[in-house]
Design a protein around this nucleic acid. Sequence first.
DNA 1: CGCCCTGTTGAGTTTTATCAATATTGGTGG
DNA 2: CCACCAATATTGATAAAACTCAACAGGGCG
Lengths: 249, 249
Amino acid sequence: MLNPVSRKFRNFVRFSEAEEVELEHLVSARRFVRGPRVELGPRAALPDGLHVVLEGWACHYKVLPNGRRQITALCLPGDFCMDRASVLRQVCHSVGTLTAVTFAQLSLSAVDELSANYPRISTALAWQSEVQAAVQREWVVNLGQRGATERMAHLLCEIHMRLWMVDLAEHGSCEMPLTQADLAETMGLSAVHVNRVLQELRSAGLIVLRGRTLTIPNLDALREIAMFDPGYLHAEREGRHLDANEWAA
Amino acid sequence: MLNPVSRKFRNFVRFSEAEEVELEHLVSARRFVRGPRVELGPRAALPDGLHVVLEGWACHYKVLPNGRRQITALCLPGDFCMDRASVLRQVCHSVGTLTAVTFAQLSLSAVDELSANYPRISTALAWQSEVQAAVQREWVVNLGQRGATERMAHLLCEIHMRLWMVDLAEHGSCEMPLTQADLAETMGLSAVHVNRVLQELRSAGLIVLRGRTLTIPNLDALREIAMFDPGYLHAEREGRHLDANEWAA
DNA sequence: CGCCCTGTTGAGTTTTATCAATATTGGTGG
DNA sequence: CCACCAATATTGATAAAACTCAACAGGGCG
């Protein structure tokens, strides 16, 4: 199986052999692993450069003076933990792992070189950055406008879709290693209320959540009540015009 | 007075004469004006290229199937309405004006050329994009973790600070043309509740909000209860090492 | 004058948080 | 395999926060 970055990019472009090889090489260069529930930044043991999650789940979060924590982004396999801009300056929020995580550490210069030589890769990077921003916007909508149940449903839809984009979800199921406390910090709810909302979704037959596995018997139904419109993830292979193989043969 | 883009960038870099001139030229090229409360995108009358607000307030928002609207970002003078990445693809959220707005329309090629010739400008653009992302993250924190009163206080602190960064705020006061309904759609609250929260802040002597003017008698006090940490706006002239004049004389 | 937009107020309801207790689970060492 | 532990999940009762509905006031403007 390809690395998750290539798998993710396939939702947007279709690379040539050479490009795939270059990407694989880029991502294989330097790796490091961290255990579950470890802080990685801003000042902690986070090496220089760009960071990509290869395996496991990480997150961005911020802790307020009153001690409450908000998770502002989930970093799933294939996701960049810190983008180019963040590298230039100290970030004022934290990065941490949720499960054990394998990261790839990309040097900025290597990425720049690749971007310069392979414009399709450069575009794919811009695309991934745009998707990340769109997810962030969608979270604002989710927190601002949806009640607890629809909010939870939306998050689960998003997680499933994002994992699906990197071939880590089947038809209607995927991994979901977040605890109810994690979900609470992600959605701005109390852990107790998360529990009740999950039960509601369960007893409505909309989800099955056991152990670390989420099953969604009827994806359309869940999306309906979540008002989930997958468009913002731009997974529709819209970069058709960026198909390296379309001129072949 | 300089254009708001230059004013904003001064929070990060100190440009050379030549750079200032180039920026001024870039921003003066093509302008267009829209009335208040007009939709601008994604499909509506929005010309190609990058767009910057020169005067007035605009916003990004998304409307859900149930009719509720969430404002996901405020575009104040000096802010970019759509960044480079968004231009490459159709955006799935909308842009609209809140007041009457004057936009500058920047061609991508002009921006690219400027970036290539003036690395400091390129860095400033990256900085602005990072600040925008940080604001977005902060909104997630705000919606997720703060109660209505602190939430409102935080938004007002942010608005004041952002306007201050472009020389549109004095010591403790600035323009605030948003209606209570706008504030509600920004903060995920009902308009009625916004009204009550504002009264609470008023009677605590923390704000004076009359007409379109916001006055903050005691900025520190408001920031305290809002848990507002201005760090995320990166206004501390951190780009000192990017001072074009430091080698002069 | 009359209308529309914005802001204000009150009453009653729904949603969500908090606190505290109890069950369940997964993993660990004996 | 079992006993035990800590982390996680569940439940009930109560309180706080926020929403909805409905009515009304004020201001600007044709």
